[in-house]
Amino acid sequence: MRLSQGGKSAIPVVLFLIVGFAAPLLAVIWFSFMPPRSFSFGGAPTLENYATIFQGTNYISFLWSLSLAVTAVALLALVCYPVAYGLVRVFGKWAMLLTLLFTIPLFVSENIRLYGWVLFLIKNGVLLGTLKSMFGLQLESILFSLPAIILGMVYVYLPFMLFPMTLGISMVPNETRDAAFDLGASRWQVFKEVELPLSMPGVVIGFLLTFVLAIGAIAEAKVLGGQRVIPITHDIEIAFTYSQNWPLGAALSVLLMLVVGVLVLLALRRFDLDTFLGRR
């Protein structure tokens, strides 16, 4: 079989993807079948690492990661949709540019931003210290608790939800909205029947992007949560560092990839982007 000109041109990219993307993934998958606490690819394949995971308590960490990610995505949707809607309706074509301003914090390391929140929330810190000195209020700190972790996740992943949502809402043509009003639709009907469905590509992309990022989150639980919650990424980190059980860490990573992959595929089946975008 002879390759077309296009096929030949794609060879460098295909090679790059194989070496840079597929090979590391395959290495992780293969390593997950190596004997526990070994450092070689050459051992006899075993399911022992997976057995350890299913017999142990790693499910707690998986459940934490999933719950935190779902909660963060739901809160982000509630926060970001009105903001994105307001940006588009008030600033029109400038909305996307303004949304870029929300990405400025991304230029600062996530850990530094989270430590900033620690200083803000800590006992006698910026918030509680001010309330105490100005109003004599002595409140308990929420630092090192579940709400602090969720706050951190919403804060960190906000730009990743806001940007696609703004894009999605800006794709709704004003003419369609005007036509619906002309035909007697109420404000709620216009939102429900026209604006929301037409902005769904942006909403779905925002959901997927933030979910995938949030399920891999670790810093929020460590820095703001004080490890009161152990997400699955933390279990993976421990396996690769203190435990030096790389095959177990690889097996946990493979399971996380599988869980995320299945959930994303299910979501894409339910919300077909091509249908939303009117390609079929």
């Binding site: 142990g56 308590t57 790693n58 707690i60 960490s61 934490w64 490890q227 009161r228 919650v229 152990i230 279990d235 421990i238 203190y242 435990s243």
Partner: peptide, 10 residues
């Protein structure tokens, strides 16, 4: 110990 830490988080 890692399992204890995980269980404490539950």
């Amino acid at each position: 110990m890692s399992a204890a830490k995980r269980e404490a988080s539950a």
